[in-house]
Design a protein around this nucleic acid. Structure first.
Lengths: 204, 204
DNA sequence: TATAATATACCGACCAGTTGGTATGTGGTC
DNA sequence: GACCACATACCAACTGGTCGGTATATTATA
C-alpha cells in the first residue's frame, strides 16, 4: 500500500512496462487494470498518464518493447553462428524447447496473448502485434532462405515455413495453457524438426 | 434500448450463450461486459443471473457449448465416412481450410481465445478449455490411431500428432489475427498435410 | 558561475461512467 | 396458487482518465 521507497526518477516508464509484461502475461490485457498496474510498478496514476496517453498506448509500447527484447535475445544466441543454416534452425528449436521449461506464464507471448483480445478492438495494438510476429518471422526466415538456397524445395517458400515456426510457437502456448502442461508444445517442436529433417534430407 | 419484442420464454439461456460466443470471439472474455452481453442477447440482468451464478459460470457454459457444437459439426461431416483414415485426416484439413474463408472472428476459437486470458485466473474456465481441446484432439486422434495401425511409424504417437493438429489450428488463428489475414494459417495446414504425406508415404 | 527561466517527471485527489452482482417484484404456466 | 422464468431497480466497488500542483533536472543568460 504505502510506498516506503519511491521509484527513482526516470525509471517509471520502464517499471510500468515491466509490470505490464508480467500482469498481461498472467491475466491478459483487458483484465489488467491501471490501478493494479501502477501498484505493481510502484508508481502513481499521474506517472502513468505522463508517459502514456491511454491504456491502449501502454499496450502498444508493451508489445513494441516485447518485440525488441525477444528479438535481441534470439539474435544474441550462440546458434546464430553455426555455419549450417539448417543447424541454426535446429538450434532455434532447441532454444524454444528450453524456454518451455519455465512456468507457463513465463513462456507465454505478450503479442500473441494481446492480439487474441484486441485484433478487432484496437488497430494500433493489432499492428504492434503484427510487427512483433513479423520480427520473429524475419529471424527464422533468414536462416530458411539460406537453407533453401543450398537445398531448394519446389513449392516451398521460406516465408511459409517461417510462418509455420510461428504457428507452432503460438499454438503450443495455447495448448500448454489449456492443459496446464508444456508437453504438447514440446511435441510440436519435435514434429517440426522431423518435418525439416525430411524436407532437407537430414536424418537424425 | 427498449425491448420491443421480448425473447420468448425459455430461450434466454441459449440466447445469452449465442451472444457471448459472438462477443467473446470479437473482444475476448474480460472485455465483454454483462451489460453488453445482456443487451446483445435481448435479455435483462435478472435473466442472466437466473441462469448463471457468475460471469465465470457463463464462461464455462460458453466453452462447454462450444465443445459440443464444434464436436457435432466435425463428427457430422462427410469425410468421416471415407474408408481410408489418412484420407479422413486430409478431409479434416480441407474442412479447416474452408473454414478459413470466413471473417477472422468467425473462425476464431472460443476455447483458445478464452484460455489465453483465463488460464491462471479461472480454474473452471481453464478446465473447460482443456475439455474442449481434448474433444477436438480425440476426433483427430481416432483417425490417427487407425492410420498408424495400418502404417506404423516408430517413435510417433497418435496423441502427439493429434496435438500437432490442434497446435496448427490455434497457432494459425493467432497469426491470422495478428496479420489480419488467414493465409499463414492456410499455409500451416498445407505444411501439415505435406508432413503427413511424407510420414505415411502418400505423395500428392 | 550564479541565477533565472523553462521543461521534464511525477504525485495524488478527484470524477463520471461502468462493472459484476443483488434483492425484490411480476406475469405466465402447470 | 405455487413455481418458474424472467424483469426492474438498485448498489458498492472499480474503471480509465483528468487536473492542479510540486520536485527535480536542463538550459539560457548575465
Amino acid at each position: 500500500m504505502n510506498q516506503t521507497t519511491r521509484v527513482p526518477r526516470g525509471e517509471a516508464r520502464a517499471r510500468l512496462i515491466e509490470a505490464a509484461r508480467i500482469l498481461v502475461r498472467r491475466k491478459g490485457f483487458a483484465a489488467t487494470s491501471l490501478d493494479d498496474l501502477c501498484a505493481a510498478a510502484g508508481v502513481t496514476k499521474g506517472a502513468f498518464f505522463h508517459h502514456f496517453a491511454s491504456k491502449e498506448a501502454l499496450g502498444v509500447a508493451l508489445i513494441d518493447d516485447w518485440t525488441e527484447t525477444t528479438g535481441a535475445m534470439f539474435a544474441a544466441h550462440p546458434y546464430n553462428s553455426l555455419p549450417d543454416p539448417v543447424d541454426r534452425l535446429f538450434g532455434y528449436l532447441e532454444l524454444r524447447r528450453q524456454i518451455l521449461g519455465q512456468p507457463i506464464a513465463d513462456f507465454s507471448c505478450v503479442a500473441g496473448t494481446t492480439v487474441q483480445e484486441a485484433f478487432e478492438t484496437s488497430v494500433s495494438m493489432r499492428a504492434a502485434a503484427e510487427r512483433s510476429i513479423l520480427s520473429g518471422n524475419d529471424h527464422v526466415r533468414s536462416h530458411l532462405v539460406e537453407a533453401l538456397a543450398a537445398h531448394p524445395l519446389p513449392g516451398i517458400t521460406a516465408e511459409s515455413l517461417a510462418h509455420l515456426f510461428q504457428v507452432a510457437v503460438q499454438g503450443g502456448i495455447v495448448l500448454a495453457k489449456a492443459k496446464g502442461d508444456a508437453s504438447p508444445a514440446h511435441e510440436a517442436f519435435d514434429h517440426l524438426e522431423r518435418y525439416l529433417r525430411l524436407l532437407f534430407n537430414r536424418p537424425a
